[in-house]
C-alpha cells in the first residue's frame, strides 16, 4: 500500500531469557557468552550473531535472545554453568512481543513516539536503548541499515502496533532524518 512509510512486522514468538546477577563476574559472563554464542555486550549495547544475541538491560541484568525452540536447552545450560552462584535466569518469552520496523524512515517513525535520541550520531547499530514508546516501556536496537527491532510487553503489543502503524503512515512523514 502506498500509504505505508515503513513496514511493520510483528515477529513470531522469540526466545528471551532474563539473566540477573553480577555482570562483572567472569562465571556469569562466560555462562552468558557460551549460551548465546556471542561476545559480552558493553554497557548499553547489544551483540547479535544470526538469531542469538545478548543485550545489556541494566547493571545487573542481561537479556539473552535465541530462537524459540532453543529456550529450554539454553536455560538448562545457563543454570548448569552458574550452579552454586547467586543468579536468576527466567524464561520471559511469553511476556514479550517483538516488532521489526523496516524502511529508510524508521528513525522518523520512532522519533514521533519516543523521547530517546534516535539521531544517527547517537543511535547506531550495536546500541540497545530501553525507553518509552508513547505510554509504555520498550527497548529497541538497529538490526540492519534500514531495520530496527523493538520489544515490548505482550500485554501492550496491540497498543504498540497501533502506535507504529499510525506513526508510519506515509502522509505523516516528518522526513527529518
Amino acid at each position: 500500500m502506498s500509504d505505508i512509510l515503513v513496514k511493520i512486522h510483528r515477529a513470531a514468538p522469540y526466545g528471551m531469557i532474563t539473566l540477573r546477577g553480577d555482570l562483572s563476574s567472569t562465571a556469569l559472563q562466560k555462562a552468558a557468552t557460551d549460551a548465546a554464542g556471542v561476545a559480552f555486550p558493553e554497557t548499553g549495547m547489544c551483540v547479535f550473531e544470526g538469531k542469538s544475541g545478548l543485550s545489556w538491560m541494566s547493571p545487573d541484568e542481561l537479556l539473552v535472545l535465541m530462537p524459540h525452540d532453543q529456550i529450554q536447552s539454553t536455560l538448562a545450560q545457563i543454570e548448569k554453568a552458574l550452579n552454586s552462584t547467586h543468579f536468576l535466569a527466567a524464561d520471559v518469552s511469553d511476556a514479550r512481543a517483538m516488532f521489526t520496523i523496516t524502511g529508510p524512515h524508521w528513525r522518523d517513525v520512532l522519533a514521533k513516539l519516543t523521547p530517546a535520541d534516535v539521531h544517527p550520531d547517537s543511535f547506531q547499530q550495536g546500541h540497545f536503548r530501553r525507553t518509552r514508546l508513547a505510554q509504555v516501556p520498550v527497548a529497541f536496537w538497529q538490526s540492519s541499515a534500514d531495520t530496527v527491532t523493538l520489544i515490548c510487553f505482550r500485554s501492550v503489543a496491540d497498543y504498540v502496533e497501533g502506535l507504529l502503524v499510525n506513526a508510519g503512515r506515509a502522509k505523516s512523514n516528518a522526513d527529518y532524518f
Binding site: G44, W56, S58, P59, A116, R130
Partner: peptide, 12 residues
C-alpha cells in the same frame, strides 16, 4: 550514571 543514557524527564 548506571547506563549512561541521557534520559528525558518523562523516562524518569
Amino acid at each position: 550514571p548506571y547506563c549512561g543514557v541521557a534520559a528525558d524527564e518523562t523516562e524518569l
